[in-house]
Structures are given as C-alpha cells and as structure tokens.
Design a protein around this nucleic acid. Structure first.
Lengths: 144, 144
DNA sequence: ATAGCTGCAAATGCTTTGCAAGGCC
DNA sequence: GGCCTTGCAAAGCATTTGCAGCTAT
C-alpha cells in the first residue's frame, strides 16, 4: 500500500518544481507561500492578507519577504498583478487572459473568463505603440 | 468694441458657477484649480503634477488643498478618478462614459471615446449586485 | 564556498488628518 | 459672525530598501 506521506510529498515536489522553473530557490518561505497560493484554485489576494494567512498557519515569514516573493513570482509569470484599488495591490494566481468583477464594498475580485466577455472595436493605436494588455474591470455594488 | 477684459471675466464667472454648482465656495485656490483643469479640453492629471502647474503659474496653494479639492470635485461629479497605477491617482476631467489608453512607459492617460470601443457579452452578474461602472484600460508600450 | 534569501527596522512616497488662522456669505 | 477653507506639519499606510545573518546548492 502507498503511504499517505507520498501524496503530500508529491504536491510539495510540484510546488518546488514550479519555484525552480522560475529560477528561484525553493526555500521554506517560498514553498509555504506557493502552497497557500496555488493549492486551491484561482485566488486574488493582497500581500497583507497572505501574510495573515501564513501566520495563521504557523508559518514564520516577514511581510517584506511576502512582498519580495509576490513580485518575484509576478516577474516569473506565476502571478499577475491586478490594479483595481488605488490603495492596495492584488495578485491573481490566474495568469491566463481574463477580466474581473470587483466587489467594491467587499474589496473582492472575481474572474470573468475572457471568452465570456470580449472587447470589440478597439480603435487604431497611437503611432509607435503596441498593446501590452487589456484590463476590463466591472465594478459592482450591492443591488439596492 | 467689447473690451478684452470681459471675455476673461466671463470665463472666471463660468468657473465660479461650476464651483458653486458643487456647493463649494469659489475661493482663490478653487478658481485657480478649476482654470487649470477645465479651461483647455480633457485632462488626466495627478495631484502632484497639478500642484506643480499651479506653483509654476505663481498660484500659492498647498498640496493638501489640492488633494482635498480633487476629492471634493470628484464627489461633486466634476472629475472622475481613474485607477491605472498602484502608486498614484489620476483624475480625469472627462466625466462621460469612456475608456482609456495608458502609456505605461510615460505614465500618460488618453481617452478612448466610448463609441469607439465596446464591451460585449458581459456575463450574468453575481446575485444581489449591480454594475457601478466598467473600466477598460488598454495598456500600451513602445512598439519594438 | 558562495550566491541567493530572509528578517528586521528604517526609509520612502503618496495621501490624509488635526488644528489654528484666514476668507467667503 | 459663523461656518467653510486653507496651510502647515504631523501622522498614516502600503510598499521598498539596506544590510547583517542564514540557507540552499
């Protein structure tokens, strides 16, 4: 019979490989963050909240390290930064092209798969430029 | 012949009325800001830049007052805040529905008239919510 | 061994706030 | 006169940075 241990082991090894693929060393802190970020479907999270979650699970890690790693993951293409709020940064574990609902009252992001919302009739671009990305944010409030 | 003075005078009176319509007193500082913001077509500007322009024209005004007034104008519907950059706020003098090009390298915003770009196939909204606004940002970089 | 990482605390940059003095109605 | 505004400086927040000590390879 296969020991349980192996299944957990495999997950961690996947995460380590993911981290290695970004040319980063799989440190204790990075593995913990990767576990929080990539273990359970798409997430949209702020540095502060991630720090809280880590501490809550008994992972010792400083906020500075959270920031450093969120940016390193983003640069490596493992995360995408979403600008929706002037006062804080959100990081999205879904790096495929897609758009967002933003629940303004709760400060919460939700994916809109890109084939469910399309942008049409994009006008001619200004001379000498090309598109880096297109961000669509559908801002939501509670229905009155 | 109509003296030149009257034409300038009229402009200032329009601005004063605009300020009054927002239930704000037309102070020296507000009139100066309104002149900078609303005299020459649509603008997209940060608090810092507006402060610089004011000082450059010899208008004595503090940065705190700039921020206060940008927010008061925004609340009154004279301006719209555009979130494109995590680190600073842009204010847009065009309050009609429309979208934006954002020149990432220059930190510059440009309007896309809304009939030149449309968003289609918006999926069903989450239960109990309604759309507050839809922001489309086409991020541009220099063409290589 | 050594290049890369982490944690802390200090520094930064933008924005907000408290409060006394000044200005509009 | 009374309330709204302003300016200054201080405070606030999210984020970044410098650097000494630690860690993965």
């Amino acid at each position: 019979m296969t020991p349980q241990v192996n299944e957990n082991r495999t997950d961690v090894i996947d995460l380590e490989n993911k981290i290695r693929s970004a040319n980063l060393r799989p440190t204790r802190q990075r593995i913990s963050l990767a576990k929080l970020l990539f273990s359970e479907g798409n997430r949209h999270i702020t540095a502060e909240k991630l720090h809280g979650e880590a501490l809550g699970k008994g992972v010792k890690i400083s906020l500075a390290t959270i920031y450093n790693n969120l940016h390193q993951f983003t640069t490596a293409g493992l995360l995408r930064e979403v600008v929706v709020d002037a006062s804080k940064s959100y990081f999205d574990t879904n790096v495929e092209p897609h758009h967002h609902f933003f629940h303004e009252d709760r400060g919460l992001l939700e994916d809109i798969s890109s084939h469910r919302l399309t942008v049409d009739d994009i006008p001619n671009l200004p001379e000498g430029t090309e598109i880096s990305s297109i961000d669509v944010i559908v801002r939501l409030t509670k229905r009155k």
